[in-house]
Amino acid sequence: MQRILAEGGAMNKLWLTSLLLAGLTSSISSIFLKWSRTSLPVDAGLADKFLSIAFISAIIFYAITIVLYAKALGSMEVSAAYPVMMGSGFAMLTIASHYVFGEPFQLSKWTGLALVLAGIYFLAREG
């Protein structure tokens, strides 16, 4: 994270905060999208599937994600910003999906999560 925080101090912390919030809103949108697919009967009509509160909420949170990500890109390298946003979102989603949907959280997911977070660390570092 040194490269992200290297220049500008507080200003770059704002961009990091924007990225982490973008990861969070991306995770929330994925939770809503999954909920929109699993909360309706299998034979639900097209309008029911795409006009449900959960589906519309997913779209709104995806839009917020784009705004936050665009804000961060204003002063960051995309090669650092994108992995931080997506990796943090992946980490949050992996944990949230376990609690919200009861998805398994086995050793393989812990290992994958650790590798992703290590990758984010190295991509965001200076040099």
Rank of each mutant, 00 (worst) to 15 (best):
A47R: 13
E7T: 12
V78S: 14
A10K: 06
A96C: 03
P41Q: 11
L14Y: 04
S29P: 12
K13P: 04
K13Q: 12
A124Q: 06
L19H: 05
S52L: 10
V42H: 15
L51Y: 10
T65I: 02
S26G: 13
K71M: 10
A6P: 07
F105N: 01
T38F: 01
F122I: 14
K13I: 11
Q2S: 15
Y82D: 09
V100Q: 02
S26M: 02
L21N: 04
A58K: 04
S97V: 03
K49D: 00
L123A: 09
V100N: 01
A10E: 06
A124M: 06
F50H: 14
L73I: 11
L123C: 10
G74N: 09
L46Q: 11
V116G: 08
P41R: 15
S29W: 07
G45H: 08
L107I: 14
L117V: 12
I95T: 10
A124R: 02
I56L: 15
I95L: 15
K109A: 15
H98F: 04
G112D: 09
L24N: 03
L5C: 14
S30V: 04
G74I: 03
S29D: 13
D43I: 03
A58W: 01
L14G: 06
T94F: 02
S97N: 14
M11T: 14
M92G: 02
L123E: 00
K34H: 12
F90M: 14
L115M: 12
Y121I: 10
L113A: 09
V78D: 04
V67S: 06
G74T: 07
F105G: 01
T17D: 06
R125Y: 03
T65C: 11
L115G: 07
T65E: 11
G127S: 14
D48T: 09
S88V: 10
I64C: 09
A81G: 13
F122N: 10
S88I: 06
G23E: 03
L51K: 13
G89E: 02
S26P: 00
T25V: 04
F61E: 02
T94S: 15
A80W: 03
H98G: 04
I59D: 07
A114D: 05
K13D: 07
I120N: 05
S97A: 15
I4H: 03
R37C: 07
M76H: 13
A91S: 14
D43C: 03
L16K: 09
T94Q: 05
V116M: 09
L40M: 09
I95K: 10
A96I: 05
V67M: 08
S108Y: 00
I66V: 13
F32C: 15
V78K: 11
L40D: 08
A47K: 13
A118M: 11
E126D: 08
L20W: 05
Y62I: 01
F90L: 15
L16A: 14
P83W: 00
Y121V: 12
S26D: 06
Q2I: 10
H98V: 00
K13C: 13
L113E: 04
T25M: 10
L51I: 02
L51C: 13
L73H: 12
A47N: 08
A70V: 00
Y62E: 01
H98R: 07
Q2Y: 06
L113V: 06
S79A: 14
E103A: 08
A54L: 01
V67K: 11
T94R: 02
E126T: 07
A10F: 09
S75C: 04
I95H: 05
V100W: 06
G87R: 05
L40Y: 07
F101L: 13
A47Y: 09
